[in-house]
Design a protein around this nucleic acid. Sequence first.
DNA 1: CGTAAATTTGACCATATGGTTAAACTAATA
DNA 2: TATTAGTTTAACCATATGGTCAAATTTACG
Lengths: 203, 203
Amino acid sequence: MAGNNKLTEEKIFEAATEEFVDKGMDGARMQDIATRAGINKALLHYYFRTKDHLFDAVFEMIARKIMKRFSPVFDENFSFEDKIRFFFREHISFLQENPKLPGFILNEINRNPARIKKLLSSVDFENIWNTFYKQHKEDLLKYNISKETMPQLMISIAAMSVFPFAARGIIEGALMKSGIEFNDFMEERKKFAAEFVISAISK
Amino acid sequence: MAGNNKLTEEKIFEAATEEFVDKGMDGARMQDIATRAGINKALLHYYFRTKDHLFDAVFEMIARKIMKRFSPVFDENFSFEDKIRFFFREHISFLQENPKLPGFILNEINRNPARIKKLLSSVDFENIWNTFYKQHKEDLLKYNISKETMPQLMISIAAMSVFPFAARGIIEGALMKSGIEFNDFMEERKKFAAEFVISAISK
DNA sequence: CGTAAATTTGACCATATGGTTAAACTAATA
DNA sequence: TATTAGTTTAACCATATGGTCAAATTTACG
């Protein structure tokens, strides 16, 4: 029973993850989640009580997954340039495996800003900057990157990997018209974006 | 009466625009639109028939507005570099006036890709590239930008201005923690992004 | 094996939602 | 001014939606 219990709960969780990522909180339907999980709709409430609770659980799992994937950027012992390359390679690879995540996360950011505010309250940006600064003092000086310009750089880096997936519906169509396949484009982007950024800061 | 007719229809359209941009198609409610417009809900159906029709009308108006604002990039007689500067200045200014648009558009791209496909069917990318190439042949050669790398560059440019607004909910909070105000940050970004891109292609 | 606990089912519930309808009201016209 | 055309209202409708509930079924345990 414990085994079966876990199975039903997991089935629900997986189906809910897919349905929420596809359609967002507003567009997802409990009946559709149940159908997707192959279970009776009442079980959603038995295991997770409400749609909100189910969504919260899914969102937190996703947030954790993302954090876990990218924390190495701040720990790895390699150069600043190689960290930029690492980030693009890893980030785009991750998004290739989860292409609908940017759309989902951005939609949720706009739909429910309070959720994000809460998420941020546990992040110590000062400490992150200090750690990063200690690791890369010389490179930061060399590239003329101050604590003030760092946010502009970080957001540009994030933008360049996330945006194509978030806007995939329009970008994919536009690329097709030029005979370019989206996945090839993103594969190529791992290198293009890294070299673009490194070139930009190497003025 | 004709004057009053126009007024009611306009009131609905404006309220619907705000409500759809705030909440998207899935999150917006006809009753809320009516409340926002200060009219009886049945009038939404009298003037626009269905929620879908109302949404279509709003979306088309927004798409037209965006196209109109940025077509000058392809017409103006100034240098390639100045076009990049012009684009960032205009684009970010536009988004500062309409900060919720990126979130709305990206959400709709993901919610209803067919709509975007239809929008794209009327765009002649080949012609746009040819026109652009004719205007900037020397600059494109100078910066080593081929027809193949152009999409990567264009998408990077779009990403760098759109993404901060689309992810405003998280970026604003993160910046606040560093004592930076979002609007100041975006004002500064007009220059930062342009010089970043020009520097990147000037390898 | 019988009993208790846990899980599942299917019918039902209360409210929300997009939409309809006919009467009332207002504006236009002869 | 009476009639017609257009607009607005408020009640209503049909279905969707998230959730409830009690009976049935399955699992666990002594």
